[in-house]
Amino acid sequence: MTPPSISPPAITETAITGPAIAALACEGLSKRYGELVAVEDVGFAIAPGQAYGLLGPNGAGKTTTISMLVGLLRPDAGTVTVGGVDLAEDPMRAKAGIGYVPQEIALYPELTGRENLRFFGRLFGLPRREVAGRIEEVLDLVGLTGRADSRLSTYSGGMRRRINIGAALLHRPQVLILDEPTVGVDPQSRKAILDGVERLVEEGMALLYTSHYMEEVERVCDRVAIIDHGRIIADGTRQELISLVGSADKVELSLDGDVDTALAKLRVVEGVIEAARTGATSIRLITEGGRYLLPSLITAVDGCATVTATQVVEPDLEATFLHLTGSTLRD
């Protein structure tokens, strides 16, 4: 499915040139691998105390973008500034403002939680007399004070995720970059992580957040960019993005029969904007006036499939995402 041609909204003036210097800003970021365009002309700015979500299907360019933001990849074009400091010109000072939490648990399993934090604290230049105190603060922040002296290999998945975030907070960064921070954790740990992240943002930390979980992004982020095929195709607040799909509704259909043929027939029904297969027997539609369109939809598939269940959902961020990218987040 070809994504609809929607120009990304211009980055707001306040975000880039407003009175406060952006905690993290990038402009015109591009990266190519031979003929493959991984990222093209990506730009956004995150103010202190702002939580910014980066949404996109796998292979959309999220990880490449983050790698360029934290200095792991050199962009072919474009600039990154952290608190006004150009990453290319003064990488040490710029990186001092970034707390990067990679998707994997980037810590040493044979060390204890405290030993891991002490190592990264020293590595990131914390003064010797401050290290112990700062470690206690971070352990308290991520709720692991009681398990600080256990080896990481004995931690649960959620505890590892929390200490993974803690290691990025040691040097008091201006901006926290979280790449899929809740993958594989139980609901309780996920809640603890999201609560902690929200608290940090309330205290003035800027946040760049990527996740497969749309509800997390909707909860934590006050601004979201949707990235696909290496480009930001939409950028705005939740309401601004949802308004891009107008009054469209999401219709979930469960079918029995030839689902592919049914999908082709549903696409041409008047009022259907987008259609995507979401499972072996399920199809998701973005429609105008979905509730009233149901009889036409059922009639359209008559002969090749039978509708066994329907659900009509009001527009939300996921519907917008589907509308803009033509795929689900887990594709």
Binding site: V70, G71, L72, M92, R93, K95, A96, I98, Y100, P102, E104, I105, A106, L107, Y108, P109, F120, L123, F124, G125, A167, H171
Partner: peptide
């Protein structure tokens, strides 16, 4: 482990 990238992304 990812620790090399973590170090490279840090201020050192």
């Amino acid at each position: 482990l990812g620790t090399l990238d973590r170090m490279r992304a840090g201020p050192l």
